[in-house]
Design a protein around this nucleic acid. Sequence first.
DNA 1: AGCTTAAATTAACAACTGTTCATTTATAAT
DNA 2: ATTATAAATGAACAGTTGTTAATTTAAGCT
Lengths: 205, 205
Amino acid sequence: MPENTTNKKTTGTKQKILKVSSALFSEYGFKATSVRKIASEVGIRESALYNHFKNKEEIFLCVAKEIFTTPFSQNDGDIKESALKGKAFLQKFAMQYKLLTFDKNNENMFRLLMIELFQNRELREQFMNEFHNENIKILSEAFFIMMQNSLIRSADPMMVAYEFLSTLFYIRLQITLLRFDGGSTTNLSTQFEKHVEFFWESIRV
Amino acid sequence: MPENTTNKKTTGTKQKILKVSSALFSEYGFKATSVRKIASEVGIRESALYNHFKNKEEIFLCVAKEIFTTPFSQNDGDIKESALKGKAFLQKFAMQYKLLTFDKNNENMFRLLMIELFQNRELREQFMNEFHNENIKILSEAFFIMMQNSLIRSADPMMVAYEFLSTLFYIRLQITLLRFDGGSTTNLSTQFEKHVEFFWESIRV
DNA sequence: AGCTTAAATTAACAACTGTTCATTTATAAT
DNA sequence: ATTATAAATGAACAGTTGTTAATTTAAGCT
């Protein structure tokens, strides 16, 4: 295992490349970010990049991999238990969503996702699966349980989940847009809570 | 006025350039669409483009201008009157939104908007103003009237408008994504109507 | 010390980018 | 038919792109 000994400086720059690339890709997108710009910000020549990555795309894939690594599943305790709390469950879910929205790294990854959404088929599929379906699954399970226990009115759980999630996404998109231009998000930051309030009033029995 | 007489062929190619550019920009975005690609699809050399447009950006601006030209305002008849119809108003609004979603030209413009959203500041502002605020304004007015007439439960009209609009947007985004890959949207196409149904049940008094 | 190996450098490549220019082609007006 | 004007062409520009190759630098191991 020579890796542990020799990787002292290697991993250093490799990590730096990823960090710099992450920032650049999430600001300008894949196409508009040149390998020379990356190298320059890392502090090396372009050719040195190729000691760490096969090509530009491999760098991108490494960065893009992080987009969906925050599992967002509040799997601490099973869903059944927490769903019984009704409104509190939704508040917790929305709060996690809000946290991701304002977390610097997640914000960048979300922006990168939006930028490349229509340019990268794989990202599109991942968006649908890991971003959308995953959340819909969790939420519809929770809503189903709430219905069983007569906490909320009867309806298609998936439908309710869709309604709840779509607004969260829209708020996030808007906040990310505003923050990208350095605008104030004080008005919107409470929108998550307001959404839960309104939504709970809409479904509670 | 020599324009009317001489523009026989001029407007022909100029229009064709815009048509081709519109298709290419909305598929690959501004940066990834080269003037040579545009010229090639039009059937002329790159240099000929510059007889019709100052530069690449002017072509883009001409195309991008169309993004927000569909006013989407159902200004036929004042809002007050149609808002009194309650659910029917929401149905009509959602139906117009659905129509735009499936209209080929609007679909392209929506895709272009999404692609360039984080690359073009002006587009971002227009998105906020003409896409978001405009709709919020119309909807909150309508909801306000509905509240006054006790058609729906009392709440912040802007808040209700936000909830209603965000889901419409999310459905549109999802449909546009699926259609981009040639996927089936049969499941989602009824989502607009379902949304109205659910939402009306949520707010009606 | 010398040897090995990874990381960085310099230099160059071929392809592509947006744009300009001088020139030719075609069209409409006199 | 001649002239004026608009449109298209071929060629070239200067700059950027991703990537490769040969070479030098630096560090760790025996």
